[in-house]
């Protein structure tokens, strides 16, 4: 086995790992606090990538939202600013979703919650197709991706973009941890995640706290979409497959463990690159299959994943 090639593949995988970790984190934050798998997370994230796209393109009359973007001073934005704007929009959208669609349902059944998120997925997906077309669009890269833009470590190339994506993800994570540990809202959120009813008894307002949770989650989702839009090309179905990887990552790490989401994303990203490279049948196109199989196997033999809370069923 060629070790340099192996190292090269690992480096290549790290980029996707960051994306999966980020989206998996979004899923985990919501599952931990609301007990709900947000199937629409990927589509919500793609929508914010389109917002970033519009903010980058500026006031173009033929582009949906272009007129609206023209009203914002400073448009067209630079890439980091556009992504920042999109993440803010995503957070607002996430908070609104919680307030308008999830909270009024109360503690409804699994079926009802699945219905809401599936409805959101379908509606958002076809909204994007209608507004911005189904064809792929070029989304500029935030970090230089040219031929020579890499570090060389032991003969393998580690791209600047990979390092950059991890720097952004880790800083966002540090920010999240600081928020959770050192602010009142963070404390309230941790309390609600452990036990909503007890949190309510000691005076935490559960609803608004969950809204913050949704905003944080959607922020991570938006980050995932905006950072990957360059490599996978922006189109309405862009995050559909990424969602499977992210769900596999979240399941592997434990659906209610942020730490697990990070590690799960790393493992799934690596396996996505390494398995097709060494198992010819899988190929690039089918690389999503191992992720699905991994997800099923974990749910079957260890539903709590690596770091999740073990659920105990009383008989």
């Amino acid at each position: 086995m060629d070790l340099v090639l192996l190292l090269q593949r690992i480096f290549d995988a790290l980029f996707n790992s960051a994306i999966y970790s980020s989206l998996a984190l979004a899923l985990v934050i919501i599952f931990r606090s609301t007990g709900l798998l947000n199937f629409a997370q990927g589509e919500m994230a793609t929508f914010t990538a389109y917002i970033a796209f519009v903010l980058l393109a500026g006031p173009q009359p033929r582009l949906t939202g272009g007129g609206l973007a023209g009203l914002i001073p400073g448009v067209p934005f630079s890439i980091p600013l556009a992504i920042f704007g999109a993440v803010l929009c995503g957070m607002a959208a996430g908070a609104m979703t919680e307030r308008a669609l999830i909270r009024p349902l109360g503690g409804a059944s699994d079926v009802a919650l699945v219905n809401i998120t599936i409805g959101l997925l379908l509606a958002t997906n076809s909204l994007m197709a209608q507004w911005w077309g189904t064809g792929p669009r070029f989304f500029p890269a935030i970090f230089p991706t040219g031929a020579g833009q890499h570090f060389t470590i032991l003969g393998a190339r580690l791209r600047y973009s990979t390092v950059g994506v991890w720097v952004i993800l880790l800083s966002a994570l540090i920010l999240l941890v600081l928020l959770l540990r050192h602010t009142k809202t963070g404390l309230a959120f941790r309390a609600v995640s452990i036990s909503p009813s007890n949190a309510e008894l000691v005076g935490v307002r559960v609803g608004p706290t969950l809204m913050y949770g949704w905003a944080m989650a959607s922020g991570f989702g938006a980050l995932a979409a905006c950072l990957s839009a360059n490599s996978v090309l922006l189109e309405p179905n862009m995050m559909l497959r990424v969602l499977v990887y992210a769900f596999a990552a979240a399941t592997l790490g434990g659906l209610d463990s942020p730490k697990g989401a990070l590690l799960g994303g790393l493992i799934i990203g690596l396996s996505q690159t390494l398995i097709p490279a060494y198992v010819p049948f899988i190929g690039f196109e089918l690389s999503v299959l191992p992720a699905l199989v991994a997800m099923v196997v974990i749910l079957l033999i260890r539903p709590a994943g690596l770091f999740g809370t073990q659920r105990i069923e009383r008989i």
Binding site: L36, L37, F39, D110, L113, V114, L240, R241, L243, V244, F247, A248, T251, F281, G283, E285, L286, V288, L289, A291, L292, M295, V296, L299, L300, P303
Partner: peptide
């Protein structure tokens, strides 16, 4: 048999997404 509720929804959604690339093989 073991995967229920929302987790089964997750697995079947994954299946729906994998089906097209799988059938191309």
């Amino acid at each position: 048999l073991r995967i229920r509720g929302i987790h089964l929804a997750l697995v079947t959604l994954g299946l729906a997404i994998v089906f097209r690339p799988l059938s191309k093989r």
